[in-house]
Design a protein around this nucleic acid. Structure first.
Length: 766
DNA sequence: ATTCTACGGCTTTTT
DNA sequence: GCCGTAGAAT
């Protein structure tokens, strides 16, 4: 029989899912029901118990964080996971396409375009297609993305008779794809689309990959869009060993093309599907679970699940009423203090969720004032900063100078007197001659109506890029390439010359990019050493994608971004409800529980798609089920939104919760609390109405934040690449060392604050 | 070529 | 009320 370990502490349905033999399997995993555990154990069991080769297993997730976590946990079970593919849809597709590049008409060194790059390509496509219609680049891009999510190529796009706009979109889309191809670039959508197209048209290739992947597992299946599902159906057609895990009640990305029907219809698409329901929740106290169930129960068209828990009833959900959004923030602050004082809940186990980012500001102000450390999750990421994007554009040009969007982006960075008009003329010339911008730069004098100065500057730019390409070939690792790039382009120098406070920060960010590259190089070396230790898969399965260190680094930037940071140590986490999915906290605050805020206004109108409301409701369910012990819902009688004062009714989701599950402070106490932060008494009619209403019825980044403050360790040997923790700066990786012993100076790249020089005794290994 | 001002318009954003 | 874009001004 199974030896102890893999099946330990699994409940019967979990065990069924892990032990399921051949054929399709749908695991309906309620919130907090241990779905990751099931996936991890199943992968381990396949490889360790059933003799499946690691390279015959493919597990796809949506987020890097989920992929990382899964890899990590599988590894801990003693599985050589480096050969198994546990990765995101996009990383996996990119990897496949690097291998199969020629078969989709690309070169293997293709680059991946982000949103901004896409826009610049769309602009060019729009200009070339000569549309006079009122179609903004944004709109056009949105329409194109939608088509890609649906898995439709331009020629497959459905255009109704006489729909002029759709017809235009189709032409722009077609031209857009040509331009991308000419740039040897793909956008995110293409990664999936081209792979689907390859599978659809090349039976030989498809057969090869089908032979490779005997077992395919998909996490968060409810979030798959049509292309992703097509991809899965091509790779693992019925009756393959396709395991999909998800929760239709947590489908909150419909607006990005996710299709709940994928999970609802799966048993129909895969006849003979075994369905396993994970309904035991290990996370939340009973009261919280019941509140969440009460909310989600109102949705039609669900796969019926009854979440239950062996946990105690626990505390009632608590309602916080305030006069306005500032009072609300104040009320939350006071509850946070009480939880710390009386509930012995650490700040790191508390979270505040809001529907829209605009709500965060007031909350932040209140927390700052109260000196409560917080962490804003998913704030603007390092790699989204303009100077970093400029730098990445140059790095990509080192690899692939044909990339028009990158040329366009940096042709005048740092400023070198190449203005819009010049670029415009160059671009028109390139379009006419069917050349890439870089090719068009061979002889700038041929570009019509340019003055001699412009010609000279364009020639200089071309020389710069050519130099970069050469330097890129010679660079031994990513860090060296980045340094070369910064030197040759003079980006850092230009920023230093500018001398403003902002430009200094930017220059520091660029230095940090070097740090990131160094860290990447160290990790890559470590990974290669580890891979060499494991037996290599047979030749017929694993052609590793050809790639240089720089290429791999860029790919990491595009597809992985920053390493997700742990939700802050000793800080309250603040995030949107969307960002909360997959996380859990002892105490959860949901603010703005008002009609028009949550559910969002867009779901409210008579003409709104009812599916919008259903999704808001699922979002609420996700929010509630993040809480382990304490759940707070907060609302304000009035709040200013978009500059105007609005009076909102309490959220319908609150009325769905049976009153016996809800607690509220005494009104007098409430009033006292409110008058402390604001002068006027609340309108009584509203208060009564409110009370009556209630009577009826599981990666994140850190930005603005606070720090608290130690320990000792001596430095011995080469500690570079070592992960350490600093009491103030948190987690980081050692990049460089000068000196030795407890006083050695370390250069560390911290996840939260970037590069810092720190004395060794202030950090501990982690 | 950069910098200023006026206007619109407005969720959520794993990759 | 804030932010990002488009257009004009310097």
């Amino acid at each position: 029989m199974e030896e102890p370990g893999l099946l330990d502490d699994l409940n019967p349905p979990q065990r069924d899912a892990v032990l399921h033999g051949e054929g399709p399997l749908l695991v309906l995993a309620g919130a907090g029901s241990g779905k990751t555990r099931v996936l991890v154990r199943r992968i381990a069991s396949l490889i360790l118990k059933r003799g499946v080769k690691p390279w015959n297993v493919l597990a796809v997730t949506f987020t890097n964080k989920a992929a990382r976590e899964m890899r990590h946990r599988v590894e801990r079970l003693g599985v050589p996971v480096s050969a198994a593919e546990v990765m995101t849809f996009h990383s996996w597709s990119a990897r496949m396409l690097h291998i199969e590049a020629e078969n989709v008409g690309y070169e293997p060194n293709f680059v991946i375009y982000d949103d901004a790059d896409q826009l610049s390509v769309v602009r060019r496509a729009l200009a070339e297609v000569q549309v006079d219609s009122a179609l903004t680049p944004r709109e056009a891009l949105h329409r194109i993305d939608q088509q890609k999510n649906q898995g439709r190529l331009p020629q497959e796009m459905h255009v109704a008779e006489g729909d002029y706009q759709a017809a235009t979109v189709r032409r722009v889309y077609a031209r857009y794809q040509e331009l991308l191809r000419a740039s040897n670039a793909m956008d995110f959508g293409d990664l999936l689309l081209h792979l689907v197209e390859l599978f659809r048209t090349n039976a030989e290739v498809l057969a090869r990959w089908r032979r490779r992947y005997h077992h395919v597992l998909v996490d968060e299946f409810q979030d798959t869009n049509p292309v992703q599902y097509q991809l899965l159906r091509l790779l693992a057609p019925p009756p393959s060993n396709l395991v999909v895990v998800g929760d239709d009640d947590q489908s909150i990305y419909r607006w990005r093309g996710a299709e709940v029907d994928n999970i609802l219809g799966f048993p129909g698409d895969y006849p003979g599907t075994k369905v396993v329901k994970l309904e035991q929740n290990y996370r939340s106290d009973q009261n919280i679970l019941e509140a969440a169930n009460a909310v989600i129960r109102q949705n039609p068209r669900r796969m019926e699940k009854r979440l239950w828990s062996q946990r105690p009833r626990g505390e009632l959900m608590k309602l916080l009423l305030s006069r306005d959004e500032r009072g609300e923030a104040q009320a939350v602050v006071e509850e946070i203090r009480a939880l710390q004082r009386e509930g012995f809940i650490p700040l790191s186990q508390m979270a505040i969720f809001f529907r829209v980012n605009a709500q965060s500001r007031v909350m932040e102000d209140a927390l700052r004032l109260a000196r409560i450390p917080y962490t804003l999750v998913n704030a603007r990421s390092f790699y989204e900063r303009a100077e970093i994007k400029d730098a990445s554009a140059y790095l990509r040009l080192m690899l692939n100078p044909r990339s028009d969007a990158d040329v366009q982006r940096v042709i005048n960075v740092p400023a070198r007197g190449i203005g819009d008009t010049t670029v415009e003329r160059l671009s028109a010339f390139a379009s006419a001659k069917k050349l890439s911008l870089f090719e068009a730069l061979v002889d700038p004098a041929q570009v019509p109506s340019l003055n001699s100065g412009a010609v000279r500057r364009l020639a200089a730019f071309r020389a710069l890029v050519e130099g970069l390409v050469e330097a890129g070939k010679g660079a031994p690792d990513a860090a060296a390439a980045v340094k070369q790039m910064l030197d040759r382009t003079g980006m850092v120098t230009a920023l230093h010359t500018e001398g403003s406070r902002e430009s200094v920060t930017r220059a520091e960010n660029l230095e940090e990019l070097v740090g990131a590259a160094q860290e990447f190089d160290l990790q890559r070396q470590a990974a290669e050493a580890a891979a060499a230790a494991n037996p290599p898969p047979p030749d017929d399965v694993a052609a590793p994608p050809p790639s240089t260190p720089l290429q791999a680094f860029l790919e990491q930037i595009s597809l992985v971004g920053e390493a997700d940071q742990e939700v802050g140590e000793g800080r309250v986490a603040m995030m949107t409800l969307h960002a909360a999915k997959g996380l859990e906290f002892d105490a959860v605050f949901i603010v703005g529980m008002e009609e028009g805020v949550f559910p969002h206004q867009r779901a409210l109108g008579a003409d709104a798609d009812p599916e919008e409301m259903a999704e808001e409701r699922r979002l609420c369910y996700v929010g509630f089920t993040r809480a382990r012990r304490r759940l707070f819902a907060s609302l304000a009688q009035q709040r200013s939104l978009f500059g105007e004062l609005r009076i909102n009714r309490p959220s319908r989701f609150l009325s769905d919760v049976p009153p016996e599950l809800v607690a509220m402070d005494q009104p007098q106490e409430l009033e006292r609390q409110q008058s402390r932060s604001m002068p006027m008494p609340p309108p009584s009619a509203f208060r009564r109405r409110q009370r009556d209403d209630y009577a009826d019825d599981e990666g994140p980044r850190i930005d603005r934040s606070y720090a608290q403050t130690s320990d000792i360790d001596a430095v011995e040997g080469d500690v570079r690449g070592l992960r350490v923790r600093h009491p103030q700066f948190g987690q980081g990786t050692i990049l460089d060392v000068t000196g030795a012993g407890p006083d050695a100076k370390l250069t560390i790249r911290f996840e939260s604050v970037g590069l810092k020089r720190v004395i060794a005794r202030f950090v501990t290994p982690s």
